[in-house]
Nucleic acid binder design. Structure first.
Lengths: 195, 195
DNA sequence: GGAATTATTGACCAAATAGTTCCGAACAAG
DNA sequence: CTTGTTCGGAACTATTTGGTCAATAATTCC
């Protein structure tokens, strides 16, 4: 009954994510987005609403995909040590195996926007909580298998591991160095292992 | 011989730092700065140049003060463990004992700007290096006194400690929680101590 | 007091910003 | 083929952006 959309909405969103990811929210203009997404204003506004709404959609989409990847990494092996290794590989990838040193969109947004924009803050908070829970679950498994230290609760160890990962991702915007990322990953693993 | 400046330049710079610190570079307008600094455009441009230059001056000033504070913390005690404690107290303060959860201006800028603005990137890189060296020195002292582990070089341990601190400061923009910060600090210390 | 010098002020500007509206064209369903 | 809908795209608007400048004011030296 009606004319079908001519562009792939998921593809366009991917382009928006890339743009926001690299430049941040404030530094990205509608023009940047239109170029990257290959749309004109009318289409964009009709499909995604205004800039802020597009940002929220981009952020949510990114977070969901990222979380999916993290779960995959964690579930990739029944051995907790191997799971953690897979997870840290993902982090290393974000740190220094990208075309541009854009770090992690989630981390970038926490720093740039979360406390100035309530909506973003809410979305991110939920994400941070589920990630930390995922880490806690992984660590708990490792404790039960005897691979990880048991002198602290899985939740508290997860807290520290998460902060460490967060630091790697944040710092990767300033320092890009593959060997360093490798060392940091190794240290993270050692940090959790039983004595 | 000439009309004297009516405002305190250091005070004005402090106001600029606060504004950039809380909002970031892009989200801060000249109007915000003028209000915060209590100046009119002409005066600001005469005294500090354009917005970008004012930002660089603010950043440098902040970094120098911060580094000074860090050195004081490190030198506050001859016992390396106490020194590290003092340093982590400083970090905790930045994390959750401020009027607004603004984290650390340096960390915020690394994430927001360092890879898009060469000048900021340069300034920050120099700072990051000197901070990491300071940490390495502190850790080296602790290794010689037998307090810190010696299974890794001071440089590599400093790398990890720095990333951890970086993570605390970055995450503090999204999660503000004093008890958590305390636990994280304690963990950082434990991470370095000899078995 | 007058000259020289510098700071302050506020009006002004050009460019870019986000966001809106409108219309002809394209398309699907009946 | 008609009709209803939604598309793409351009033209438009109102606001905000960072930035300039000439007139005015304050100070010191001579």
């Amino acid at each position: 009954m009606a004319r079908p959309r001519e562009f792939d909405i998921e593809e366009a969103l991917e382009a928006a994510i890339s743009t926001f990811w690299e430049q941040g929210y404030e530094a990205t203009s509608m023009d940047d987005l239109l170029n990257a997404m290959g749309l004109t204003k009318g289409s964009l506004y009709k499909a995604f609403g205004d800039k802020h709404n597009l940002f929220l959609l981009s952020l949510q989409d990114y977070l969901d995909h990222l979380f999916e990847k993290m779960k995959e990494a964690v579930d990739s092996d029944s051995d907790p040590v191997q799971s953690l290794n897979a997870l840290m590989s993902l982090v290393e990838e974000l740190c220094c195996k990208q075309t541009t040193p854009r770090g992690c969109f989630a981390v970038n947004t926490v720093v740039e926007l979360s406390q100035r924009d309530g909506k973003s803050g809410e979305i991110l908070k939920k994400h941070l909580i589920r990630v930390e829970k995922l880490l806690a679950k992984l660590i708990n498994n490792g404790q039960e298998s005897g691979d990880f230290r048991v002198d602290m609760s899985a939740e508290h160890l997860a807290e520290s591991l998460f902060v460490y990962i967060f630091g790697m991702l944040a710092q990767s915007r300033g320092i890009t160095n593959q060997a360093r990322a490798r060392r940091l990953s190794t240290f993270a693993l050692a940090m959790l292992q039983a004595a």
